[in-house]
Design a protein around this nucleic acid. Structure first.
Lengths: 159, 159
DNA sequence: GCACATTTACTCGGATACTATATGTCCGAGTTCAAACGG
DNA sequence: CCGTTTGAACTCGGACATATAGTATCCGAGTAAATGTGC
């Protein structure tokens, strides 16, 4: 799985912790964890295309959550970065070669594909059950100093 | 996810359907679905290293299941091909840069990593609940012609 | 006819190229703000 | 003193290289069987 997934998740949680407040530039968000700023911007663009964050150009511009964090699940973020298609894609190899089963109107589904999809549904459901707001709330509860430090650092004129 | 996973899963089911019987060469197994024979052999080597299949060299050689199919879960096969490490690996980026939390003895776990691992456990559990014998049994039950055709084709002197 | 050495054919196994995806970087389009200018 | 114009700085956004992992292939080591030979 891509490394940018972790970046995007932390980013969304940080944006949730920063609310309410002005938009945050990508470079500032990246500098908080010493990430490559421009490539991180690329991931943010993917989040924007998915409608998770919105971008404001120009000075005082940057990124902001497009929805309240209660409406953003971890699954949404992962799908925005990694792509919506499932990790396991059945190529229907059983239809090829001498062992090909009934060619066209075969109603028997591929049992392996079925099992794989079932497992992936379990994964997706687990991720869809956790929202960005849940994570942010737990962070506020367990380590109250972290959100304050984050807001101060984001508000700092320059680093 | 790698394409070889699908190949390995179908291969294990076919080996289960072929039992009892002589060992099957990799090329024969690959030809059944018109797969690249040599690369498919590579995947079989991975299965052998994981102890799922055993290889016999020389004439009359080939591959055979190393355990009864009831003891082989889909998770075992996937882990053998894709590797045992989890798909999402937390790089602990929160420890880096100005936003670094308490450096060393920080007991607070990364909540994002926790959620991701939880979801991945759900995925692994779903795959571990299905065995190769289950799939093979369903195939025998739903499409009785398929196992017979497979055994005949594997026993054919040459194709 | 039988035992043995030899040859042969067949198998896996690891080492070696090629391709697609993910990672990292660069420069241009657009927008807002601030300052300078003129009335 | 106020409105307008002009400029500049800052932002995102897509287009362009590089590194890594997955895909595909080749050739050599090893083994069992079959064959030919001598007794």
């Amino acid at each position: 799985m891509g490394e940018g997934v972790e970046w995007a998740l932390h980013c969304c949680v940080n944006l949730a912790l920063a609310e309410p407040g002005p938009a945050v530039p990508a470079a500032r968000l990246a500098g908080y964890y010493d990430l490559p700023p421009v490539y991180f911007n690329k991931q943010l663009q993917a989040l924007a295309r998915a409608g998770i964050v919105e971008s404001l150009p120009g000075p005082r511009g940057g990124f902001r959550l497009a929805r309240p964090p209660e409406r953003i699940t971890l699954m949404d973020v992962v799908a925005a970065i990694e792509g919506p298609e499932p990790a396991f894609r059945c190529a229907e190899i059983r239809r090829r070669g001498p062992g090909a089963t009934a060619p066209a109107g075969d109603p028997a589904p591929c049992l392996i594909d079925e099992a794989m999809r079932s497992a992936e549904v379990a994964w997706r459901s687990a991720l869809a059950a956790r929202t960005v707001a849940d994570i942010a709330g737990s962070v506020r509860d367990r380590t109250p100093g972290v959100p304050d430090r984050l807001r101060r650092w984001l508000a700092a004129p320059r680093a």
